[in-house]
Nucleic acid binder design. Structure first.
Length: 713
RNA sequence: GGGCAAUUAGCUCAGCUGGCUAGAGCGUCUCAUUGACAUUGAGGAGGUCACAGGUUCAAGUCCUGUAUUGCCCACCA
């Protein structure tokens, strides 16, 4: 060590150290020494297998690895199970963009061909991601590495779906779903975003009544006019059939009374278009006996269909313009409010307006599942950190609506449901994967599988018990429920809440004891990182320049639960200096303790004892902070101790003491003891350099790696 | 429309159950210097803790209200 460079060179050390860890086998809980009994489990949120890691991934790897390494040193039988997500729709979009660049499209391909190409693509990416996780120092058990499309995962997903179907918790229903006409698929409510916009509000003459709407182009799908039951203006029309002149001839519409109609809004009268508006759909459901059902006028291609006469084939916006123009000509528009402010639903991916579309899809009945998921948190079977996210969780759970899990995509897990073409009503048979031999209803043999795939979140919501091989595998019995789910706060509903629901449904136990949520990584000005802004920090680039340990400390200090964290190259450089400081501290101690024999404990002076006593406080503080998930505090405290107490005070004071033969041995003992234990405390945060120094320190008893050293007490 | 939070040094943020003469890192200023480390050391400047009330022996810390900012949820034409 003494011959080594004055400056620590992370690049020369890290890969070698990671190989040492892998060789030790201790990432695998089954290979840990016998003293590691009580299990401690974290399931890694599987990164998408469609892109390399970004700095946000580095945050979760760092925090989870801190927990894992800390608990491993605490003598726990520690499992950190890594994985990769096929990320259905997300990956399909990424891959379609690649195809587009080559002038190709999935619609020119066979579904199987497309699937095969995406499969190969994700497998290649998985390798990259795995290498990157290793670079970040992740001490996860690679022997249990799991892909969301592995056979045992799919098998579990099918079993759950079958069970839910049998118990009536999933149903196939015709509902208005959020449909993106660009991506040609439906989405769950969670997957759409809302935006406030100003659009014209058209007052259209429907016979003697004027109705206000922002969507004149759906008028062909009107099946009624609705007014408030107590509205004096319209009372005389309620229950009557009104003759109405339209742009394409005359028709009649019935006037119904519904208390959901706000007399204050617009004219107090509304056109009812059940096929293209969720409110109107609900209205029709309330008045099924009085009025006609949904009449679809917009197709899945986003164009007006055959029910719209001469407007057939026009895109929605185009048709709207034309219809308004034609109505004006015919004198059917009373007035237009140009700046009507309202919110519209958009596709989260392409920002296109979401078209409510009437489709038959598979839905999960969420209310009973949510009830149990609420109970688990209320009864503290699961604790969410930071605490205030529990309120958010309850709020969402209490207002939950049924979950559409059908997607019209190609990349994903196909739905194990078969439609019988012999049954007049089209009966569905759900299995746990295999094609049924005959229809469960009529025993017919003409069965056709549903072409849709599952929402990726439906399968990933089963990750906790699927990865551990529920119900019979020893991993499930040993490691479930897991200890901590550490993940990004923005997927609380998408993933965490649904894992709670489905895991409790299948296993009767909440899947984790703690949920720890972290925020987004922002740049030093708190701006979101994005490629277009050019403020993206590439973790691998940073590692190359400053080393993994520096990056990890920089991402830990100042990172508060549930809050966004700011990072800059300056900050990382600052912590690189700390890494180097630790290196030089160790060089000094190493130089000064060359011929020191630790077997004989020398008599300590008052000052020596004071140093040890003070250090005990640091040990306690660090342990407490980690037990409370206060990563930033733990790291900051250690940083401060090492630099401004151990280096600046202890070492400086030691120089004369080491030069005195009478006091030398005792001080050597103190320096080695405190440095040795400090390395252990620091190891979860900066695993590489602490291992490198540990390997060379003249400690009395040493393990093959600091990873399995006992945590200081 | 509903909910959740934040507001402390130039910047990024701590300050957990009330005791602070309010802290850290970065930045900044002065000085030192190649003898573990210049990726260094010593020292300094810098804050009426958003605002207004209240509870208390005591409030950055608890309560109420106001302002500003951010985030999330939401089927009213």
């Amino acid at each position: 060590m003494a011959e080594l460079n004055k400056a620590y060179e992370a690049k020369k050390v890290e890969d070698r150290i990671y190989k040492l860890w892998e060789k030790s086998g201790f990432f695998n809980p089954d290979k840990l020494p016998k003293r590691h009994k009580t299990p401690f489990t974290i399931l890694m949120p599987p990164p998408n297998a469609n892109d390399p890691l970004h700095v946000g991934h580095a945050v979760f790897v760092t925090l989870e690895d801190i927990l894992i390494r800390y608990n491993r040193m605490q003598g726990k039988k520690t499992l950190w199970l890594p994985g990769a997500d096929h990320a259905g729709f997300e990956t399909q979009v990424v891959y379609e963009k690649k195809l587009a660049k080559q002038g190709r499209s999935r619609f020119d391909m066979k579904r199987e061909e497309f699937y095969k190409e995406v499969w190969d693509y994700t497998q290649k990416n998985r390798k990259t991601v795995k290498e990157q996780l290793k670079k970040l120092g992740a001490s996860c058990d690679w022997t249990r590495d799991t892909f969301t499309l592995d056979a045992h995962i799919i098998k579990t997903v099918y079993k759950t779906f079958k069970k839910m179907a049998d118990e009536g918790l999933v149903y196939r229903g015709e509902r208005l779903v959020n449909y993106c006409t660009k991506h040609r698929t439906a989405f769950a409510d969670l997957e759409i975003k809302h935006e406030t916009r100003k659009d014209p509000l058209y007052y259209m003459k429907y016979g003697p009544i004027v109705v206000a709407t922002v969507r004149p182009e759906t008028k062909f799908g009107d099946t009624a006019i609705a007014v408030h039951p107590d509205d004096k203006r319209y009372k005389k029309y309620i229950g009557k059939e009104l003759k109405i002149e339209t742009v394409v001839g005359k028709r009649t519409l019935k006037v119904i009374a519904d208390k959901e109609v706000d007399p204050e809004f617009g004219t107090g009268a509304v056109k009812v278009t059940p096929a293209h508006d969720a409110n109107d759909f609900a209205m029709w459901e309330r008045h099924k006996k009085e009025i006609e059902g949904p009449l679809q006028v917009i197709g899945l291609d986003g164009r007006l269909n055959e029910n719209t006469g001469l407007y057939e084939g026009m895109k929605v916006e185009e048709a709207r313009e034309k219809i308004v123009k034609d109505m004006k000509t015919k004198g059917l528009i009373e007035k237009i409010d140009e700046d009507y402010e309202h919110t519209i639903a958009l596709c989260y991916k392409c920002n296109n307006v979401i078209e409510p579309m009437l489709m038959r899809q598979w839905f999960v009945k969420t209310k009973p599942l949510a009830k149990e998921a609420i109970k688990a948190v209320k009864e503290k079977e699961t604790t969410i950190l930071p605490k205030n996210y529990e309120k958010i969780y309850f709020h969402w759970m209490n207002n939950i609506r049924d979950w559409n899990i059908s997607r019209q995509n190609w990349w994903g897990i196909s739905i194990p449901a078969w439609l019988c073409e012999d049954c007049p009503k089209g009966e569905w048979t759900v299995t746990d994967g295999k094609k049924p031999t005959s229809c469960s209803k009529c025993k017919g043999k003409n069965l056709k599988q549903d072409e849709d795939v599952f929402d990726t979140w439906f399968s990933s919501s089963q990750w906790p018990f699927a990865t551990l091989k529920y119900p019979n595998h020893k991993d499930f019995k040993t490691f479930y429920p897991t200890d901590v789910m550490e993940t990004a706060a923005d997927i609380l509903f998408f993933w965490v809440a649904r894992m709670m629901m489905l895991s409790i449904y299948q296993t009767k136990k909440a899947p984790f004891k703690y949920v720890y949520l972290h925020g987004l990584v922002r740049d030093k000005d708190r701006q979101k990182m994005s490629k277009s802004k050019g403020n993206v920090i590439d973790p691998l680039g940073v590692i190359d320049t400053y080393g993994t340990d520096a990056l990890r400390i920089a991402l830990t200090i100042g990172n508060m639960p549930g809050k966004d964290t700011a990072i800059s190259e300056d900050k990382i450089r600052g912590y690189r200096n700390f890494v180097n400081k630790l290196w030089n501290i160790s060089r000094f101690v190493h130089l000064e303790t060359k011929n020191y024999n630790q077997n004989k404990r020398p008599t300590l002076s008052v000052k020596d004892k004071a140093i040890l006593k003070n250090f005990e406080k640091i040990v306690k503080q660090t342990t407490k902070a980690l037990d409370e998930f206060r990563f930033s505090h733990a790291a900051e405290n250690l940083y401060h101790y090492i630099w401004h107490t151990y280096a600046d005070k202890v070492i400086e004071d030691s120089k004369p003491i080491l030069n005195n033969t009478k006091t030398r041995a005792a001080r050597q003992y103190v320096l080695v003891k405190v440095l040795g234990d400090s390395l252990k405390l620091l190891h979860p945060f900066m695993p590489f350099i602490t291992e490198e120094i540990y390997q060379q320190l003249p400690l009395q008893k040493k393990q093959t790696t600091i990873m399995i050293e006992s945590w200081p007490t």
